[in-house]
Nucleic acid binder design. Structure first.
Length: 463
RNA sequence: GAGGGUGUAGCUCAGCUGGUUAGAGCGCCAGUUUGUGGCACUGGAGGCCGUGGGUUCGGAUCCCAUCACUCUCCCCA
């Protein structure tokens, strides 16, 4: 045992080469789709001024923000009386920066700060880690990546439709076949709350109803009761929640229930329009569900909301988003409407890993290993190495003069498909020994034949 | 914030109701093969049994505390 027990902070992870390669595959796939839809990348700092983040995520979310201790003597500003005012007051004086909690709020800040140079409607994507001081568990980390794409500066519901296409394309590309894309509308939810006579209780309602699928009707009822919903209100909720069928059927039934509500009708029209747009541009998306119980926690959503679920794995949602009418308002720039989607790539990774959806050929990086037999052959090998790399063959050379057994074992373990054995025999004859590690077959070739041979075999494999 | 579970070799774990040198599989190293990997065989290294205390003639095993990890709920990606 080593002298010290090393560890990393709870909820964080080291990634080995294979894992990073797989993650990059996911990121690259999503990035390609974002760009295909005309989204442009931005990046923002890992840390924001604390004041940018506070007041945006509700009380629960606020607790989960990782704050950064001020540098230097941060104690000198604190007086004894500050202590009596509690930790919140102290926090203000010892921490003025924090790690970003999501990508949407920093994006809103970015939009306001750069509004004069941005071309609206602004389509941006952003793929960066975020941090939450949450308690880790399955599928939940304290450091994880989000892949966000948002359009800001238009109210057009075409953007919602495009987001649905993108989700669909991403799931298809990654091979997550059994998934659901859920859509709902916050306006519909508010009008339901209104209709059952509980205005102002929207947040409580959303939080409770969101769990319907997971915990069942009884626990939702008891949660609503505990939040002060009357029996009458709960009873009048049933006809609405019992609406079933295709999205179109649900909309018809819901219309009857909410016809008197202006907000409700507007929400329904929005959903209808989005569905119509989705179909106008492509065939029906069969995984798309209109789910009245979808609520989503973030309180800044005001219109359509989305969620992506992988149905084979119990891991929570693998992505979500929605429309927010006034996100930049808190930064002094009202009237900008936006809509966005966020993919949780760490969860997507877990899902793909469990379902074995990653392509197999990820394991090898180098295509060829030069096994150099003796000190006097080194210079010859180095020259060869240079030429091979220049010819586009990913190559490495075993850096020490050790037994060939050891060098081949190295190639084997790293899944390098070719070994090139070079010693005095090869140098004298000019014929190099190429070994195919999979078949064990060895050939004697000159250098130009070698390059051709490898390129031929590789291109065959890839087809 | 509330509640479970688990800490023994690098990894996955066994070790029953306390009993002498703490085990297995996999992995690692070496050899069988002085220029040939995977397979097989042979040998080897590697453990303050998470930490501290208690009960006992005797503790990996029982009791208490503590720390770490993990899972569920809350909330979220």
């Amino acid at each position: 045992m080593l002298s010290q027990k090393l560890s990393i902070p709870k909820g964080t992870r080291d990634f080995d080469p294979e894992t990073v390669t797989k993650r990059n595959y996911i990121i690259q796939s999503i990035k390609t789709i974002f760009e295909k839809y005309g989204f442009q990348p931005i990046e923002t700092p890992s840390m924001e001024n604390l004041s940018v983040l506070t007041g945006k995520y509700g009380e629960e979310g606020e607790q989960l923000i990782f704050k950064i201790l001020n540098s230097g003597d941060f104690v000198k500003e604190i007086s004894l009386s500050d202590f009596e005012l509690g930790y919140k007051k102290i926090t203000q004086s010892i921490s003025e920066k924090a790690l970003r909690y999501d990508l949407t709020v920093p994006f809103a800040r970015y939009v306001v700060m750069h509004k004069n140079q941005i071309i609206f409607p602004f389509r941006r994507y952003q793929i960066q880690p975020v941090w939450r001081a949450d308690r880790p568990q399955k599928g939940r980390y304290r450091e994880f990546y989000q892949c966000d794409a948002d359009v800001i500066g238009t109210e057009s519901l075409i953007c919602e439709a495009e987001i649905i296409w993108m989700i669909n394309e991403a799931m298809e590309q990654l091979g997550i076949k059994n998934h659901s894309i859920k859509i709902n509308n916050r306006k519909i939810l508010s009008s339901i709350v209104e209709r059952i006579g509980m205005p102002g209780k929207e947040t409580d309602f959303c939080v409770a109803i969101d769990k319907l699928e997971k915990t069942g009707i009884d626990s939702v009822i008891s949660e609503l009761k505990s939040k002060g919903f009357t029996d009458l209100a709960i009873a009048s909720l049933f006809p609405i929640l019992e609406i079933k069928g295709t999205p179109a059927e649900k909309l018809v039934a819901l219309k009857k229930q909410l016809e008197k509500s202006e907000t409700g009708s507007k929400g329904i029209l929005e959903i209808e329009t989005v569905l119509q747009y989705v179909e106008a541009g492509s065939a029906t998306i069969s995984n798309l569900e209109f789910d009245l119980t979808l609520a989503r926690g973030l309180h800044y959503y005001t219109g359509c909301i989305f969620e992506i679920k992988a149905n084979d794995i119990s891991i929570g949602s693998i992505g979500g988003g929605g429309r927010y009418d006034n996100l930049t308002g808190v930064f002094g720039e009202p009237g900008l409407s936006g809509v966005g989607i966020s993919f949780g790539i760490d969860r997507i990774f877990d899902v793909m890993q469990e379902l074995n959806l990653f392509p197999q050929q990820f394991k090898n990086f180098a295509t060829l290993l030069i096994c150099c037999m003796d000190k006097s052959s080194e210079n010859f090998c180095l020259k060869l190495l240079y030429h091979l790399r220049k010819s586009g063959i990913n190559s490495e050379m075993y850096p020490d003069i050790v037994k060939i057994k050891k060098q081949l074992e190295y190639a084997d373990r790293k899944k390098i498909p070719y070994a090139l054995i070079v010693g005095t025999d090869e140098i004298q004859s000019g014929l190099l020994t190429l070994k195919n590690m999979q078949t064990g077959v060895q050939l004697r070739l000159c250098e130009s034949e070698l390059v051709k041979k490898i390129n031929d075999e590789l291109s065959h494999q890839q087809i």
